[in-house]
């Protein structure tokens, strides 16, 4: 409903996942929650629980071991949701581009809505990005959004959507 979707941008709850970054962007996200920048004035709460989140803040270029978690967390967030890739290594791989255990940016696995530059992104840029993400969030529909890879078939149980097998393991789904 139109009335309710206008409240999306007033109450963005954030899930933060580190997919192999250097900590720089993570502590900047923490600094953005702290008094000087205080993301909470936009209604942001760091929930730490994918099922109650709207914005997925990811840092890091996605290492081999964290990609399954990334996809799993992504598919656990109920729609509408937006993904913000914080930092250059998250957006494009940054200085880790081309290293053997790294996947050059999270958009190889999940659709990204906002790419934040900077190494490390400053809280200022993170606030900008969250503001931008909120504009996108408001226009999104409640359609199911899928990760690109490591993704099992959509199943329904008793005519309801089941997310149990959404993020299938590597062995089952061929890596493409």
């Amino acid at each position: 409903m139109k009335f309710f979707s206008s409240f999306r941008k007033r109450s963005p709850w954030v899930l933060h996942y580190n997919a192999g970054s250097c900590n720089g962007c993570d502590i900047e996200i923490l600094a953005a929650l702290a008094p000087k920048y205080d993301l909470e004035r936009f209604g942001v709460i760091n929930t730490g629980n994918p099922k109650q989140s709207d914005i997925f803040l990811v840092t890091g270029p996605v290492t081999y071991r964290s990609r399954e978690r990334l996809v799993e967390l992504y598919s656990q967030i109920p729609e509408p949701k937006v993904v913000v890739a914080v930092g250059s290594c998250t957006a494009t791989g940054g200085v880790f581009r081309g290293m053997y255990n790294v996947e050059d940016g999270i958009d190889r696995y999940i659709p990204v809505d906002v790419y934040v530059p900077g190494c490390a992104s400053s809280p200022q840029l993170i606030i900008d990005a969250v503001a931008r993400a909120l504009e996108i969030l408001e226009t999104k529909s409640k359609e199911i959004e899928k990760p690109f890879k490591l993704f099992g078939a959509i199943e329904t149980i008793h005519n309801r959507l089941s997310r149990l097998n959404m993020a299938a393991k590597v062995g089952q789904n061929e890596k493409n």
Partner: peptide, 16 residues
């Protein structure tokens, strides 16, 4: 100056 964040249409990664 700080660079602004990109959206999906900018192709920050794909295009590169």
């Amino acid at each position: 100056k700080k660079q602004l964040s990109a959206v999906a249409a900018d192709g920050a990664n794909e295009q590169w």
